[in-house]
Design a protein around this nucleic acid. Structure first.
Lengths: 238, 238
DNA sequence: GTGAACATTTTTGTATACAATTTTCTCCAG
DNA sequence: CTGGAGAAAATTGTATACAAAAATGTTCAC
């Protein structure tokens, strides 16, 4: 569980609030990317405030942050809800990922160490197991971790921030347009690691580009999802 | 003045607040990127609240947004101040820009129209005039507009959001490490437009990559800036 | 004079009260 | 039964009060 958060950057200098805010932010973030809060779900301030046992002031801070990261949509006088990405937004997100991640591979091929590869292979193995055991949401989470973990090897924090955001949004996109039958993509992340290990920047870059195109081409833009969650129960263990 | 804002995306669904918040955000944003508020300057909530004639609640919302965009740094119990990017952050920002903007040129070469080029050439002309007349901060602003305007032609909102943020941060970086003698770069943005017009994606992409590398190599990482501004006077016309 | 301890002021953090808006419910005319 | 007007409830928007922390100023021993 702690490994899940390792690539997501949280620090007090961004929000000014202490670790309590961060904990609430992470709880909501995990609930969103794990599809426990479906796109379109409303997020009433009072319900969240009592669930997390703080005042609405703190909740609003967290909601605004999630809104700026596009995981939540804030409508004036009508509150917050989990974002429901449009098809156009879905294309934009994966196109931006394609540009950034394929470029990042050049740097990753140059800078990676053997230890980095070991760690990434552990992720792919965990992902493979999650897939075979039909733990779909965890497979998506691990896949996201693989992509952010790869970009983290560039050592570029600004880049990592943006990719982390795009990966989170991808999770929402998959929740809305992902075909629940096949698992997203047929290829394995191990193929990429082999190219990285062989220090072939062009091949790694092109593989990543094709990989992201394959994911977006596997989306089905003719479905939808809505629901009304129970925050007290969802965050009872907080 | 209105053209200045056209590529900066503001919408209520991101913050939930009305147009008053946006107006305050823009006023502070312009003050920061125009170097009227130097890096390191403190931003006391009370002073801003009385300057903008709203309560601290609204100011805190705006400050948090600026903090998430890295233009402002929020230190717990010590308030907000204009961010003072480190040399490492400066390199990261321009490296991320290099990746994104050079990739974006491929799409721009494909999609641009004659009308787009006319508009961009107006920007380069205005930039040239600002340079010859030694209006340094306006030249930086127009240069930023050129870059965001170019990326806007991709039609990718997520990409544009991120580039807008990186361009804003670049303005802060230039405020801290920019050599006040030469104007930033020796080359002209017109060269790029010629490559775009000739529909040469590889050349346009490589030009952009070299351009951004030249800017960062022109920075001098041995200087600094600090000050204490007067908000009442600065936003008197608000 | 120096500097440490204490008091004062300033500034930020949090909760809450109240206003404004939206949503839901109720009732009655048609 | 339908649907629209109006009342009631729920929810968000904003300001402010109070608590907590940091910055500043003062005093006094040495």
């Amino acid at each position: 569980m702690s490994a899940m958060r390792q690539f997501h950057l949280f620090n007090a200098s961004m929000t000014g609030a202490g670790r309590r805010d961060d904990a609430i932010y992470r709880a909501l973030w995990e609930a969103i990317v794990a599809h426990k809060l479906p796109p379109g779900a409303r997020l009433p301030e009072d319900a969240l405030a009592s669930a997390f046992k703080i005042s609405r002031t703190g909740i609003r801070r967290v909601l605004q942050r999630l809104a700026l990261e596009r995981l939540v949509t804030l409508v004036p006088n009508r509150g917050a809800q989990i974002s429901h990405p449009s098809p156009a937004e879905a294309h934009d997100v994966f196109e931006a990922r394609r540009m950034l991640e394929s470029s990042a591979m050049i740097s990753v091929v140059e800078r990676h160490t053997a230890k980095d590869l070991v760690h990434l292979r552990q992720l792919t193995e965990a992902e493979r197991q999650a897939l075979t055991q039909r733990r779909r949401s965890e497979a998506i989470r691990l896949s996201g971790q693989f992509h952010t973990g790869l970009v983290a090897l560039t050592g570029n924090e600004s880049l990592l921030d943006f990719i982390s955001q795009l990966v989170s949004r991808s999770s929402l996109i998959i929740a809305v347009y992902g075909d629940s039958r096949h698992t997203g993509c047929t290829c394995s992340h191990d193929e990429l690691l082999a190219l990285v290990e062989s220090r072939d920047p062009v091949a790694a870059s092109q593989w990543m580009s094709a990989h992201l195109e394959e994911i977006v081409s596997g989306l089905d833009f003719t479905q939808d999802t809505v629901a009304e969650p129970d925050f007290e129960r969802l965050f009872a263990t907080f």
